[in-house]
């Protein structure tokens, strides 16, 4: 007669599982990293080389000094109005309209962009945002400015997307449509080579 195999006692299984559980609770985190994603420009190959010239009317200069004050187009600016200013600057305006008494809006070009498989002429601003900061600028202010710039571009993209496809940019599903919007309104933020501007 075959001997009966004694059953393995599973009573401590719960304890073992508990130990594993607590180990994982302690060593892991649940938070997802979020942030503002940016693409850095490639380094200048030749330091003597002049950067490509951009017409002055196409540039919006934003300076942040070491005490976190803003200078927007040579006038004192404020972070709470920056978004509207950038939107106004980058939006498409008819030729001849003036931004201030002396300064016209940036140039507008017609670009052929493929929308849903068919080429379409879309007006595209030649404007560039130039951002300069001091070594003494606080990171919080820098991020606040970057955030406002991103928000301005985002709102412009939303507007165009609403016009072309009837829905917001973030709600677009097709990659091609996203590409088209990105082509029409590229994130043109240029960060100057680091220099010390005024007072550390």
């Amino acid at each position: 007669m075959a001997r009966k195999v004694p059953e393995v006692n599973a009573g401590s299984m719960a304890d073992i599982a508990f130990l594993l559980l607590i180990f994982f609770l302690v060593t892991t985190t649940m938070d997802v990293d979020t942030g503002i994603i940016r693409q850095l420009p490639p380094p200048l190959e030749d330091p003597e080389q002049e950067p490509p010239k951009v017409k002055e009317r196409n540039i919006m200069n934003i300076l942040i000094n070491s005490s976190d004050r803003l200078l927007v187009n040579n006038e004192r600016g404020d972070i709470s109005t920056l978004r509207e200013e950038v939107k106004d600057f980058m939006a498409i305006h008819p030729e001849g309209e003036m931004r201030t008494e002396e300064h016209p809006y940036p140039e507008v070009e017609e670009a052929e962009i493929e929308v849903d498989g068919a080429p379409m002429m879309i007006k595209k601003s030649k404007g560039v945002i130039s951002l300069k900061n001091d070594r003494g600028t606080s990171y919080e202010m820098y991020i606040a400015v970057q955030n406002e710039l991103t928000a301005a571009f985002h709102e412009l993209r939303d507007r165009l997307s609403q016009e072309l496809f009837g829905r917001k940019y973030n709600d677009l599903v097709l990659e091609d449509r996203k590409k088209a919007i990105e082509n029409a309104i590229p994130l043109r933020i240029s960060e100057a080579e680091p220099v010390n501007i005024g007072g550390n």
Binding site: D33, T34, I37, L40, R135, T137, Y139
Partner: peptide
């Protein structure tokens, strides 16, 4: 980066990243 940090050190790090071609960066924020 901590929000009280001055941009100087951040700019230095960004320059280093540019030189080795690590162009895609993320400014971690809440």
């Amino acid at each position: 980066v901590d929000k009280t940090t001055r941009m100087g050190i951040v700019t230095d790090v960004k320059q280093e990243l540019r030189e080795i071609g690590a162009f895609k960066i993320n400014y971690s924020s809440r």
